[in-house]
Structures are given as structure tokens and as C-alpha cells.
Design a protein around this nucleic acid. Sequence first.
DNA 1: AGAAGCAAGACTCATTTGGTCGCATATTGT
DNA 2: ACAATATGCGACCAAATGAGTCTTGCTTCT
Lengths: 160, 160
Amino acid sequence: MLRLTKKADYGLMALKYLAEQAQCPSASQPISGAASAKAIADAYHIPPQLLAKILQTLAKAGLLVSHAGTNGGYALARDAHDISAFEVIRAIDGPLFITSCITIHGTCDLAGHCTIKEPLRKVNDSITDLLSKLRIADLIEHADHPPDAALAGGLVTIAR
Amino acid sequence: MLRLTKKADYGLMALKYLAEQAQCPSASQPISGAASAKAIADAYHIPPQLLAKILQTLAKAGLLVSHAGTNGGYALARDAHDISAFEVIRAIDGPLFITSCITIHGTCDLAGHCTIKEPLRKVNDSITDLLSKLRIADLIEHADHPPDAALAGGLVTIAR
DNA sequence: AGAAGCAAGACTCATTTGGTCGCATATTGT
DNA sequence: ACAATATGCGACCAAATGAGTCTTGCTTCT
Ligand code: FES
Ligand code: FES
């Protein structure tokens, strides 16, 4: 249930990588804090070609700026604080939603006799909200923060 | 993204149906508030055989009690207030989670170089929480409650 | 006995994902 | 100018998952 696709996962990783790059810009880059698709793919051991396509999608969505040519690459279009995980996921996976019934036709096949829709929509909204509040800057965990025992005892996910 | 499977959707609908049945029990049922798989499938126009399997799964998970034979059927094992949407979804879709990386092996293939995991886990927990709080009793909307303009202006889901 | 119902599995078909290849185009260092 | 390094885009493919069907057997009620 509620699975995030690998592409979205990769996308978030890449974004995080770029956000870190932006913090400590190295010498003479056409765009500050840029990195090539291959470099990022290499860093995380993910298929370079696939990552390339993901980054292109992200660029088209306006979350990244790209620059071709030697020493080119991608960089964040905005500040890391201004990009939400929701945007990233939506850009990659498309606006699919929990209800499994919002189709292209606007209404569900079951519309009318499905009474479940509205309550689920609220859940959906909450999740959207949640994801919107999570910005990619938040993904950068400063290793110096103390382990929060507050949220210990979380769920244990057992294999299916 | 974050799609609920149709099976889970069906399951929730069925549960709701049974919850309503339980409220106004009709005459001489082996179990109070019971309905056959076919009856429910009929009511919502969903494939009977498929629903049957879903209900069986739910029964195995202990959310429903079943009774074979003429006038048999399924009924809620517990009160509608004591069954969360989370349980239903988990029973049907299995404990898949947002991260797409929690595998049977316990750790992800990318473990080590994936830095995204922890923040996403928190999101995951929040969603779990959300779903756990939604009980199937909540799905029964009494038509007499006023339309809450408070949550108007929610997301507009556009076709992909 | 026979009908109504659940239980369980194998099996098919369509969709979605994850991933690859090839080629075109843009940029830049030398 | 030219080669090296990148992105941009589309077609393509294989594996996994999802949705739904079929068959066979068991249980209970009338
Ligand atoms: S499944 Fe479409 S409205 Fe519920
Ligand atoms: S994808 Fe598995 S830990 Fe991030």
C-alpha cells in the first residue's frame, strides 16, 4: 500500500544531493551547485540513464535548471527550502491519488454507488498536506542532532 | 502516487456496508448483521468473485466472521468503531510502505548510500497514524450533517 | 438431497514499473 | 574547428503487480 515509486525515490535522493551541493559550491561551475546526472547516479549507485530521465522530468517541471555541455549538469531551480517533497513526487509519478477512482473522465466508474469516496478524500488531503510541508531542505539531516527517543516504538514493518 | 488498490477500496466499501447492516439487523440471521458476498457485490456493482476473495482475506485477518450455508455470509467481527481503515488496508494490500525499499531482507538494496530513508519513514508513520484513526464507523456519513464549508477549496486533482 | 453459501487455489490478461538504447542537440575547453 | 561532455527525447523491453475469472471442494440450512 501507499508505495512511493523508485523513480520518485531516486528523484528525492538527487534533489537532496543537489541541495547539499548548493551549500558548498565548488569552483567555476556554469551554474552554482550543479552536478551532472552521471555524477549523482554514481554517488548513489543508481542506473545513470534512468536518473537522467528523472532529472529531465524534474527540469521540465521547473524544479531544476539544466545546463548542457562540459561541466554542465543540473541544479536546484529554487532554494531547497522552497521545494516540497510533494512537488517532486507529483512531477515524477503524476497526480495519482489514493482513491484509485479519480480517472481522466473526472468521475469514477463507481460514482453513485460508492459511498467511500468523501472520507477517503479527506485522508488524501491530509497526506498531501503532510508531503507539502516536507521540504527537501528537511531531508538534509545534520548528523549532530540528538537521536530523538520521542518517536521510538514506531511501527515494525513485517515482510508480506 | 500513493494509490490505494481497488481491492482495498472494495474491502472498505464492503466493511461499510456490513457496518450499516449491523445497525439495523433484519430477521433471523445466523449472525446478526450478516450479508453474503454476492449481496454486497450486487449492491456496489463490483465483481462478485473478486469481492468474495477479498472478504475471505478479511475473514482470515480476523476482521470479519463468516458463516457458511444458506443465509450465511459475513459480519463484522468487532464493532465498527473498533476497526480502523489501516487494518483493512494492511490485511488486503499487505504491509507495503511508502519507502519502496523495505524488503523482505529487512534492509534496502541501497541501504548505506540512501540518506532519504529516515525522513520518509516519519512521513510514513504519520500516514499510518492517520489511517489508524479513521475507523470504518466514520465512513458512515449521516446525510443530515451540514456541508462543512470549512474544508472547501481542497486540492483539485487533474488527470495525468 | 439439494440449494445457498464460504474456502482456496491456479490461472489469465492488462497495466505499471524499472530500466535500456540510440540518436539528436547544446555547450565548452583546447 | 573540433572533440569531449552533457542534456533532451522517444522507442523499446522485461519483470512485477494488479484485476478479475474459473474450478473444485466443503459446510449449513431447508
Ligand atoms: S471507487 Fe470511485 S468513488 Fe469510490
Ligand atoms: S531506497 Fe531503500 S533506504 Fe532509501
